[in-house]
């Protein structure tokens, strides 16, 4: 029983990380239709930024997070300006920006590998390393912190898309770009904002997970894959789907390892088999896209 309750916290924390990366994908893909596999690399850039701010300069945690967020806004905005906009303006086919962003992925990874070296670097957690017992639930401080922050981000994102005018303009672009443009919505502003927001959310995932996995140049790709899987499970259309997808993936991973009677080498394949089976049953993911409302 102790194991189960510990694992609930651990899997929920991992699920929140996957969910945040899925949200980063979603923020970009919804209004623009572009899938940016570089979100994992953004998480890596933010983790390295957090390493500099927290471990090297030893700034307070909140200040560090704010600085990293500013850095990520710039990174997202620059990525859009340099790799996406020139292609869209020249009328490149939809897959061209995806390829350009894959190129940016390599650029980010190599920049970090050159700038920070190949070794993993330590990023301290928000409240130190320790075990917190909340009633029956038990886990590390950082696990509870990850869950709390992710809950706040998802609540904020949901509120933004459902309740604010700017959020609705994103939704309008997602539903029909041409109609939205005709209605006076500034498409390039929405695109730039979506990249910046995506970079901030991916960066947050990176900073939150870095105390566990350390900041290093290879940390991005696994996060990008886990986040993308979560996105597909969740349906790739709605904010709550991203979180749900992340949680399902993390629970499937960790409960398989802990309880399924399969050899350790095979356990990591089980969630992907589940994913394939799941997509056969529900090809559009768990949550269906919302219909256009009058």
């Amino acid at each position: 029983m102790t194991d189960l309750l510990e694992l609930l916290v651990s899997a929920a924390a991992s699920g929140c990380i996957y969910g945040l990366v899925a949200l980063a994908y979603l923020l970009i893909t919804r209004p623009t239709g572009i899938i940016n596999f570089g979100v994992g690399e953004w998480a890596m850039v933010a983790a390295c930024g957090a390493y500099v701010a927290l471990s090297r300069i030893e700034l307070p945690y909140a200040v560090s997070i704010a600085l990293v967020a500013v850095l990520m806004v710039a990174v997202g905005w620059l990525t859009e300006r340099l790799a996406v906009r020139p292609l869209v303006v020249r009328g490149a086919p939809p897959l061209a920006p995806v390829l350009a962003l894959l190129g940016m992925l390599v650029v980010f990874r190599e920049l970090v590998s050159l700038g920070f070296g190949p070794d993993p670097q330590p990023v301290p957690p928000a409240f130190g390393f320790g075990r917190l017992e909340l009633g029956l639930l038990a886990g590390s401080y950082q696990s509870f912190f990850i869950i709390a922050i992710a809950a706040a981000v998802f609540a904020g994102a949901w509120y933004f898309f459902e309740r604010t005018l700017t959020g609705r303009s994103f939704e309008a672009v997602a539903l029909d770009r041409r109609a939205a443009a005709l209605m006076g919505i500034n498409l390039s502003r929405v695109t730039a904002l979506s990249f910046s927001a995506g970079a901030v959310v991916a960066g947050l995932a990176g900073v939150l997970v870095a105390p566990n996995v350390s900041a290093h140049y290879l940390m991005g790709m696994p996060l990008a894959i886990q986040g993308f899987t979560a996105l597909v499970i969740g349906g790739a259309t709605r904010v709550e789907g991203a979180l749900l997808g992340g949680l399902i993936l993390a629970f499937a991973e960790q409960f398989t390892v802990r309880y399924a009677p399969v050899p350790p080498g095979l356990a990591m394949g089980v969630p992907l088999v589940l994913l394939i089976a799941f997509l056969l049953v529900r090809p559009a993911g768990l949550l269906r896209p919302r219909e256009a409302r009058a």
């Binding site: 194991d3 510990e6 694992l7 651990s10 924390a13 991992s14 990380i17 997970v209 566990n212 996995v213 940390m219 790709m221 696994p222 996060l223 894959i225 886990q226 993390a250 960790q254 409960f255 390892v257 802990r258 350790p264």
Partner: peptide
């Protein structure tokens, strides 16, 4: 690329 080793160490 794992984010935790808790399930393995529980076993």
């Amino acid at each position: 690329g794992s984010t935790t080793a808790d399930p393995q160490m529980q076993k």
